[in-house]
Design a protein around this nucleic acid. Sequence first.
RNA 1: CGCGGGGUAGAGCAGUAGUAGCUCGCCAGGCUCAUAACCUGGAGGUCGCGGGUGCGAAUCCCGCCCCCGCAACCA
Length: 478
Amino acid sequence: MSRPFYITTTLPYVNDKPHVGHALEFVQADALARSRRLRDDEVFFNTGTDEHGQKIYDKAVKEGRDVKEYVDFYAERFTALKEKLNLSYDAFIRTTDEKHIQAAQEIWKRCEAAGDIYKKNYKTKYCVGCELEKTDSELVEGKCPIHLNLELQIVDEENYFFKLSKYKDALLAYLAGDVVTPLARKNDAINFVNGDGFQDFSISRLKEKMSWGIPVPGDESQVMYVWFDALTNYISTLDWPNESADSNFTKYWMNGETLQVAGKDQVRMQSIMWQAMLLSANVPPTQHVFYHGFITSGGQKMSKSLGNVLDPFDYAEEFGIDAVRYFFLRHVHPFEDSDFTRERFVESYNAGLANGLGNLASRVMKMAEEHLTEPVVVAEKEDFTDYFALLDAFKFNEASDLIWQKIAECDALIQESQPFKVVKDDAEKGRALIADLAVRLYTIGRMLNPLMPSTSQIIKDAVKANKKPENMFSRREA
RNA sequence: CGCGGGGUAGAGCAGUAGUAGCUCGCCAGGCUCAUAACCUGGAGGUCGCGGGUGCGAAUCCCGCCCCCGCAACCA
């Protein structure tokens, strides 16, 4: 039943170091990828970095750095996450990669061939903060409501446009399907398509004003708009436009299941612009996009001035990678904003990991090590239907709860059947009870694989070796 | 009429129609294999307010009240 499964995060824009939001998205995507591999699906897990655009160009210039050197510097901060978060991605695409540049130019040509790109002299207001055009109806007191401190740029030049308006009906038909989770985001998308903001958009800039972009095919005076370029990464990473039968593109995008993971502010780009580009280029749209919520701190958006910015990598350092993954997956709501504070983190760490999982592993394996003469026989194949169904629905929290229910069951079972006592009077019966617990622990270990891969391995190894593991999660004070 | 999120036990949260749940804290008991961990029981909730639909509503509909976010970074 092996089937190809493609999953991708959005590409972080490399104008700063990775933060908690990136960490959340990567960990969620990683859990999904691992859960598919656990089912023997063939997985292609993509991530990477978005490296073009005016904002990056401006910042590099401002810091007096060569732009390429600047993006290299930040791209490295993101590739380092593979180790820091124990990610299992298969590809890391950079939009400055040669194969990506060629793919971006190719999709441009396809859209152009479809008659969807035209040149227009236009004048508009542009927010560099969003890297988006703004219509007057979107403005508050003449400024972008999201970036009130930035003056809008007045763009007055001849640019290329993409005929988004042509795809109104096609997009509505697409959005009517099961293509967006959660429902609130699907409604956002439909409302946008039906609203005033749904208009053709500029997809190029005059090179003389903004040189840091991919050249427009056939017009050396223009470079591509950053979004038009960046979105193409989802297929350039699959070596598109190589559409041969044995290409990754054919295997995963044409014949596989495709899934994008994105933040809840990405609806307009991922489910509208990008899908319209694909329709224009005659490439199938993404089958599903999952939009996660944001992480707040102390009930407020993290901000440097409030001093409530939490660095997940500090926590990974202090508590271990799996503790951070545990928090993100079990105690962060998949769709809504969630609060992340040290108090909450330590509380859930102590309750779920030290007292719960870690303690159970210790008590079971201590008995097993002492009383079993050899490791229990364990199976690699079990029925995790409910568990996988929850993961497939992006309900990482509820999926986790299933595992912790099993942990609680084991604790209660030990209390009731008292194998530590029984084994003294009736060795055979006691050993049977202990063996059963070891098997249960192994199952818990297997289920943990997508969420906490290292911990999963430690538990499985301990059961197989019939040896009590070192304390995995020691209690912490707040 | 800005946009969005939210109001469920002392605190923090889950729960989109069918006997109100989780974590922490508190009280009482138990166990001793284990990381002062674990188990059982208990106290504690008009699920913001008022209407409506339903056999049945925290959950759906209408109205109202209150709280939070909407420089920069940005998922």
